[in-house]
Write a protein that binds this DNA or RNA. Structure first.
Lengths: 185, 185
DNA sequence: GCGACAGTAGGACAATTGTCCTACAATCTC
DNA sequence: GAGATTGTAGGACAATTGTCCTACTGTCGC
């Protein structure tokens, strides 16, 4: 595997687990197993790595959603896949929170120029969810419903990270699904 | 005002606006207008400041909730006060997110020993909300309802920070209030 | 074989980090 | 007023930060 991709992958993981500010050039280089000097050959600044990571995440997100669009037959099932993230990834979420939400708020605090790109990942989810609700026949408030589902997953992820209460998470997921099913009539 | 309190206040604000990791001794000292050396007289380590800040936040939170308990006549009104936070503090939330949620997740990523104390602030809100739902006659699922309301505010705060969409925030607040009112019958 | 070039290693660089020490100023006690 | 205590200033300290440079190794086309 190309060194550049290895760097992006390691940075992606470390940014998620430790935060952007905390993660240093040295720790990324160590994780990949290359020298700090070589690092500079691939990325001039830390911001450049962040941009590459955000680009990768954007691509991964799009690919994941495209996969769901294909794999799940109905729009409701697709939304359910999204809602289930907090259960599927509960292990990581309990430890590090939601990758999108935590990075977005960290970049907001840092006043980082790439903040908009991080918000863009939220935007991809938002648009995709909106599409599903449109297909469900809720064109008028599709975006509003998308935001509600997005907010749900962010709220549950934050509490999951804080309390680690798996019963609550599953309870709330089931509750939202029930609400969404009553929408599909 | 005592220097120590000034330090805690400045650190509290800076931890919120810039994050814990980003905020340095130097920037706190500069904000207060004292020398870095004097700083050491009041707090030996950065962790000590964090602990003092968390203690202060815990006290502030308890005082605020006690005030609401007195000021608002019904438990439903009290819960509404909480829900309204995302509207009342929208300016700060759009810029820096929720003070509790963002600090908790940052400390989680850092693996910081004070993480539990930060989660404790969430716990104070959780318990207080649970009390209100008990008074509302929902003893059986009071804590579950408390978690739902907590998750709501975290979700809306995260999206408010990401998108800055005030219409959505107000819409969702009104929506939750309607749901809560139907609970009070 | 040779020159060009992508990739890597190691380390220099100034700046900043958290931590800690010593010396001075102010205030209080007796 | 003398002495002790509390508070403050300024700077030293090693470690780490992001950034950048130079020298070496391998591989390629010719």
């Amino acid at each position: 595997m190309g060194t550049r991709k290895q760097i992006v992958d390691a940075a992606n993981r470390l940014f998620y687990q430790q935060g952007y500010e905390r993660t240093s050039f040295a720790s990324i280089a160590e994780a990949v197993g290359i020298s700090r000097g070589n690092f500079y050959y691939h990325f001039k600044t830390k911001d450049e790595i962040l941009e590459a990571v955000l680009q990768a995440r954007l691509g991964d997100t799009r690919a994941m959603l495209a996969g769901w669009t294909e794999a799940a037959a109905t729009p409701l099932e697709r939304v359910f896949r999204f809602v289930d993230i907090v259960v599927t990834n509960r292990g990581d979420i309990e430890l590090y929170g939601c990758p999108v939400g935590t990075l977005t708020s960290e970049l907001a605090k840092l006043g980082h120029p790439s903040r908009a790109q991080a918000v863009g990942i939220f935007g991809v989810f938002r648009d995709w969810l909106g599409e599903q609700f449109k297909e469900l026949g809720h064109s008028a408030n599709a975006d509003d419903l998308a935001l509600q589902v997005l907010a749900f997953s962010q709220g549950v992820a934050t509490l999951s990270n804080a309390f680690g209460d798996r019963d609550y998470v599953e309870r709330d997921v089931r509750r939202l699904k029930t609400r969404l099913m009553s929408l599909d009539t």
